[in-house]
Design a protein around this nucleic acid. Structure first.
Length: 261
DNA sequence: AAAGAGGGCAACCGCAAGGAT
DNA sequence: CATCCTTGCGGTTGCCCTCTT
């Protein structure tokens, strides 16, 4: 038995969009917006389903779309974000202004998967080196009431404000660079470490766990193995999704995946 | 020069979530 | 509370272009 189409397709056009259709869609959205995708094609006089119009707009016609090849930096960012988020293309796209989830998904499947494979091959060839990275499992991120436990982590105490990023319980960094040394923690910190900034830290002070393929997509794994600085979370959100910027920036700041290999 | 292979990318499909009724 | 509708998302498809033989 053939499944009925998800939307009415009788008389509706499919396939590649023509420049004329694009023009109509752009003009209509500019004039009336896109509050209702389903009704839009009818109102605009397009023989397309709403879904198709939405996709065309989001992936191609939106004025803030960045066209052209991905830069090296963007590719690196995608690889790192994919390590953290898995196949959550929209979440990855949200971190890359002007890039769409579809575009990122395509570039992943066409270029970056291969690139990463090479990296992983390299990694497996250097397993011995890999095993020298210390593994820690004393600290749980999942329970914010465990903040006392964080103070038992010697390697990261004193990590407070990272320039260009914000910890979940701190205010957004201001444009003034003088704010870099601002201490914003609310609990669990020791007074004598308040002047220490991430910038001044030796990267060797940060210890990441051994990472395998499942690590970043497994919150439980992350929660049980990553070393969290004392007082870093305080009363702030504690889940990974609550502040992905925080995790990503921390990861990148500490050297990213290369640092772990 | 022609044919086949492979890659890149736009578009489609189906499902799930969330809101409206 | 149940059902319907709409939107958003990730996976997949298929066309077109380029490269290789």
């Amino acid at each position: 038995m053939v499944r009925a189409p998800c939307c009415e397709k009788v008389g509706l056009k499919r396939g590649p969009w023509t420049p004329e259709e694009d023009k109509i869609l752009i003009s209509h959205i500019q004039n009336y917006g896109h509050s209702n995708w389903r009704a839009l094609p009818k109102q605009a006089g397009l023989l397309r389903c709403g879904k198709s119009c939405r996709l065309r707009w989001i992936n191609y016609l939106r004025p803030d779309i960045k066209r052209g090849n991905f830069t090296e930096e963007e590719e690196e960012a995608i690889i790192k974000l994919h390590e953290m988020l898995g196949n959550r293309w929209s979440a990855i796209a949200a971190k890359l202004p002007g890039r769409t989830d579809n575009e990122i998904k395509n570039v992943w499947h066409t270029h970056l998967k291969k690139k990463l494979k090479q990296k992983q091959d390299f990694k497996s060839n250097n397993k011995q080196l890999h095993e020298t990275v210390p593994k820690c499992d004393e600290v749980s991120v999942g329970n914010q009431s465990d903040s006392e436990n964080y103070s038992n982590v010697p390697t990261l105490t004193g990590l407070h404000e990272i320039p260009g990023m914000h910890s979940p319980m701190s205010p957004q960094p201001s444009s003034s660079s003088s704010d870099h040394s601002t201490v914003t923690e609310t609990s669990g910190a020791t007074a004598e470490t308040d002047n220490i900034t991430f910038e001044n830290m030796d990267s060797s002070e940060i210890i990441f766990p051994v990472i395998d393929e499942d690590f970043w997509s497994d919150e439980a794994g992350l929660a049980s193995e990553i070393m969290i600085p004392s007082g870093f979370y305080g009363n702030g959100p504690t889940s990974i999704d609550d502040d992905m910027d925080f995790w990503y920036n921390l990861f990148v700041k500490s050297g990213g995946i290369e640092e772990l290999l």
